[in-house]
């Protein structure tokens, strides 16, 4: 019998790709923004500084051949040939993932403004947009005053009957570490491993202005054009969609105020502990 079983052998697939897990650290400063102070009518009366993990935008992480510390004002993945001076070289990642993603939160005005893993419930969303000077409104411009109305719109829009089925609210991705910074785990599956490869990423920080609130909470890595459209009687909702080449041409998505990996995370073995520090703030060229 043992002989018979021994004939079975053991199939080892030996895939060239592996799954990597690690931690991404976002400095406290990246989650600290100057926001407007508002009076009862919503008019800006001043400003104040606030640290809040809801200011942490979508984070894109990739595995690359190496780091280029010279081409840009921040560490950037090694690139392929630059064929067009106006276009960076393709970075050709071995794998990637995100921490948080853009999700549509039921109202047209929230398209491209909500990142998953940042908001715990409807009130959390309503409060956040209120304090950044962009209270949530419906199609007709009516302000959404309570969570119940918000929930009903979501149930109607997504044809669901439970908050569990919505992705934009729920458990938070980030916790505060002993340094006061924010950190979260990430899972980067199906990644081709090369010894010494670099794990690098960036955070697309939301635009937050204490004075010009109309453009607050916008992201360069999300676009409404070409995204999913859902007709609803006379209106059409455009849900927004993240750009599809964020890891191939990251410099096209990194703009002033975004936080970039420091370029020091290299993977020397398949079971290495991986920590990516997004400690470089891009303040412009």
């Amino acid at each position: 019998m043992l002989f018979l079983l021994s004939t079975l052998g053991c199939f080892q697939e030996n895939l060239p790709e592996l799954d990597f897990v690690g931690t991404v650290v976002v400095p406290k400063a990246a989650a600290t923004r100057t926001i407007p102070t508002l009076d009862e009518t919503g008019a800006v009366t001043g400003s104040e500084e606030l640290t809040d993990p809801r200011f942490i935008g979508a984070i894109f992480l990739g595995a690359y051949a190496g780091i280029d510390n010279t081409s840009f004002a921040y560490p950037h993945p090694s690139m392929g040939p630059i064929l067009d001076p106006a276009t960076p070289g393709n970075a050709f990642p071995y794998g990637g993932t995100s921490v948080g993603r853009f999700d549509f939160a039921c109202y047209d005005m929230l398209a491209c403004k909500i990142v998953t893993g940042r908001f715990s419930d409807y009130d959390d969303v309503l409060e956040y947009f209120r304090i950044i000077g962009q209270p949530v409104t419906d199609f007709d411009g009516n302000q959404i005053a309570d969570a119940s109305t918000f929930q009903q719109q979501c149930f109607y829009y997504y044809h669901v009957t439970s908050d569990v089925e919505l992705s934009f609210i729920g458990d938070a991705d980030f916790t505060v570490n002993s340094d006061g910074d924010f950190e979260a785990e990430f899972n980067m599956p199906h990644t081709t491993y090369y010894e010494g490869m670099a794990i690098w990423g960036f955070m697309d920080a939301p635009t937050i202005s204490a004075t010009s609130t109309a453009t607050n909470q916008t992201f360069t890595t999300c676009q409404t054009t070409g995204s999913r459209e859902v007709p609803d009687y006379n209106d059409t909702t455009t849900e927004g969609e993240q750009v599809t080449e964020a890891l191939n041409f990251p410099s096209q998505s990194i703009t002033t105020g975004d936080w970039v990996g420091d370029g020091t995370t290299f993977v020397g073995s398949v079971d290495a502990e991986i920590t990516v520090n997004l400690s470089v703030e891009y303040s412009g060229d």
């Binding site: 894109f60 990739g62 392929g80 393709n90 970075a91 050709f92 990642p93 071995y94 794998g95 990637g96 993932t97 995100s98 921490v99 948080g100 993603r101 853009f102 999700d103 998953t116 992705s167 990430f186 899972n187 081709t192 969609e241 993240q242 599809t244 080449e245 964020a246 890891l247 191939n248």
Partner: peptide, 16 residues
């Protein structure tokens, strides 16, 4: 293709 953490959308690709 490379996906975001939920497999909802593409973030990029291996070959560009």
């Amino acid at each position: 293709l490379i996906y975001d953490e939920d497999g909802y959308a593409y973030l990029g690709s291996h070959d560009g």
